[in-house]
Amino acid sequence: MKIHAPALKGKGVFFRTKGYHLLKVRHSQISQVYSLTAVTNQRKPILRDVHLGHLVIDQLRRQDQAGHTHSLAWVVIPVHIHWLFELQARSLGVVMCPLKSRSSLSLNHTTHSHGHVWQKGYHQRAVRQDEDLKTIARYIIFNPVRAGLARRVGEYPLWDAAWR
């Protein structure tokens, strides 16, 4: 959706209502549970390789070990990751920047490539207190089944949940 700026009418200048600039005003709160999705650059299915998926999982676990997050559920599928976690310290941006940059370095090093691995930004949603975390976790870990990557959750190797 584009909004034409009236003061610049006729000059071909548009302001986008959604986009990267919205990330700068993103608010995050310690002890809040978030459902987050990060997508690979141009939706390339680089994470279909289980070994490469584990490199991303290592970075998710690193955030937990550093005390920044407490992961409740996650799944890594070929073109994106879904992650349900409680923010323990810092901000979403401070958690996501090293996650994406370190996983990019690992993935590029392993595949002998270079360039962007992730799309800019990420989609996050603060989970309301009245929402059932297990229901959200089930939705997340069933993504590979819905995508046709597995017949059952247990067949897919790149997921975990606190309620296993």
Rank of each mutant, 00 (worst) to 15 (best):
Asp130His: 05
His82Asn: 01
His68Ile: 14
Ser103Trp: 08
Pro78Gln: 03
Arg61Trp: 11
Ile81Thr: 05
Leu55Val: 00
Ala38Trp: 04
Glu86Gly: 04
Arg151Asp: 14
Glu86Met: 11
Pro98Ala: 05
His109Gln: 07
His54Glu: 12
Met96Thr: 10
His114Lys: 13
Trp74Arg: 03
Val75Asn: 03
Cys97Trp: 15
Arg138Trp: 14
Lys120Ala: 09
Lys18Arg: 13
Arg90Met: 10
Leu87Ile: 02
Arg151Asn: 12
Thr110Cys: 08
Leu92Lys: 01
Lys134Leu: 08
Val50Gly: 05
Thr17Ile: 15
Arg128Val: 05
Gln124Pro: 15
Asn108Thr: 04
Tyr122Pro: 06
Ala150Lys: 08
Ser113Arg: 07
Tyr139Val: 02
Val25Phe: 15
Leu47Tyr: 03
Gln59Thr: 04
Ile141Tyr: 11
His109Glu: 00
Leu36Gly: 07
Ala126Ile: 05
Thr37Asn: 09
Lys120Pro: 13
Leu72Pro: 07
Leu52Ala: 10
Pro45Ala: 00
Ser28Leu: 00
Arg61Phe: 00
Leu52Gln: 05
Arg43Met: 09
His27Glu: 13
Val95Thr: 12
Leu107Asn: 00
Pro98Ile: 10
Leu105Val: 14
Ile57Pro: 03
Val76Lys: 07
Tyr20Leu: 13
Ser104Val: 06
Val127Gly: 01
Leu55Ser: 02
Val13Pro: 06
Gly67Glu: 08
Leu92Tyr: 00
Asp130Ile: 01
Val13Asp: 04
Arg151Thr: 08
Thr40Gln: 01
Val39Thr: 04
Val33Ile: 15
Val75Glu: 03
Gln42Ser: 12
Val39Asn: 03
Arg146Val: 09
Gly115Arg: 08
Pro78Arg: 07
Asn41Pro: 03
Tyr20Val: 10
Val79Met: 15
Ser101Glu: 08
Gln129Met: 01
Arg26Leu: 14
Lys120Val: 03
Gln29Leu: 14
Asp49Lys: 01
Tyr139Leu: 07
